[in-house]
Nucleic acid binder design. Structure first.
Length: 273
DNA sequence: ACCACAACCTGGCCGC
DNA sequence: TGCGGCCAGGTTGTGG
């Protein structure tokens, strides 16, 4: 479910809920999802949270008086909620009780996501690329990365080791805005197209964060409220509908096992027909 | 080194 | 109603 804008929305709320609070109770219902040992629980209980933040699509909990952290990932259907509905109670795998009485539940239908304790240096050794909203994500960086890579530009952008945080929705939307066909070999992009893509990606992610993320079915923020960005999608999930730029019906193909949406007229493969 | 693909789970939807 | 098949916002391991 969640890509960078959704994770950012969740993290902003988690930071408000957790920062400065101590975790005074932890209940684990599904150990495979939240594999805390007794040792981990001893470490965690009564410890104060200093910050909750995001790296790519990972959620990071920092604590006082320790260099260890909690690292979370929502994968497809994970969410943190303070107000679970009846339907979600059966998919709750853990709950955290804070010293102010708040209770935050980790809910995950498909059980792909989860939460684990990591050491201080773990984050740096993970194969994660640049943050797309940072000043290090530039035309020069993208141009250098696509050099020598023949895979489709969509597959390249989905790979978190070059640029991280993008997923299926925002890759399709960014390629549409920059009029680049998803099947174009990455190395075939011109500098001009790389420049355009960098700008599209930053702009689309920022708008999605402003809109509190895209809710298609599962995604909700911690108060179980939907995002609003789904109302602004140009190609994702728009199969058969007229392109909002040229009225040609939006097409959907399979690329790397993922549904891929594009306008066959705006996003051409051949640069000079 | 690069890249495609199956696997991990559950639930919703569509067609028969 | 029921059942099979396909789809889903992500990542990882395997094998060519």
């Amino acid at each position: 479910m969640p890509e960078l804008p959704e994770v950012q929305t969740v993290v902003d709320e988690l930071d408000t809920l957790f920062r400065g609070r101590s975790i005074i109770g932890v209940d684990i219902y599904t150990p495979s999802v939240i594999p805390f040992t007794d040792d981990d629980l001893d470490w965690l209980l009564n410890r104060s949270v200093s910050a909750v933040w995001r790296r790519c699509k990972y959620i990071v909990f920092d604590f006082e008086k320790t260099n260890d952290r909690l690292l979370g990932h929502l994968r497809m259907t994970g969410k943190f909620v303070s107000q679970p509905t009846e339907n979600e109670v059966k998919h709750t795998h853990a709950r955290f009780v804070l010293d102010n009485g708040d209770v935050i539940h980790y809910v995950d239908i498909r059980k792909f996501g989860g939460l684990k304790r990591i050491g201080a240096e773990s984050l740096q050794t993970m194969p994660l690329g640049v943050e797309p909203l940072s000043s290090t994500f530039t035309t020069a960086h993208l141009s250098a990365c696509v050099n020598g890579r023949n895979r489709p530009i969509k597959s390249f952008l989905m790979d978190q080791q070059f640029v991280c945080g993008l997923g299926n929705i925002y890759v399709d939307e960014s390629l549409f805005r920059s009029r680049v066909h998803p099947l174009r070999p990455a190395q075939s992009l011109t500098d001009k197209e790389c420049r355009s893509l960098v700008r599209s990606i930053k702009s689309i992610l920022r708008s999605a964060i402003t809109n509190m993320g895209t809710t298609l079915s599962d995604y909700r923020n911690t108060e179980n409220i939907s995002g609003q960005n789904q109302h602004y999608l140009m190609v994702y999930g728009q199969t058969g509908k007229p392109c909002r730029r040229c009225s040609t019906p939006i097409e959907k193909i399979k690329l790397g096992g993922r549904g891929t949406h594009f306008c066959p007229r705006c996003q051409i493969i051949d640069e000079d027909p």
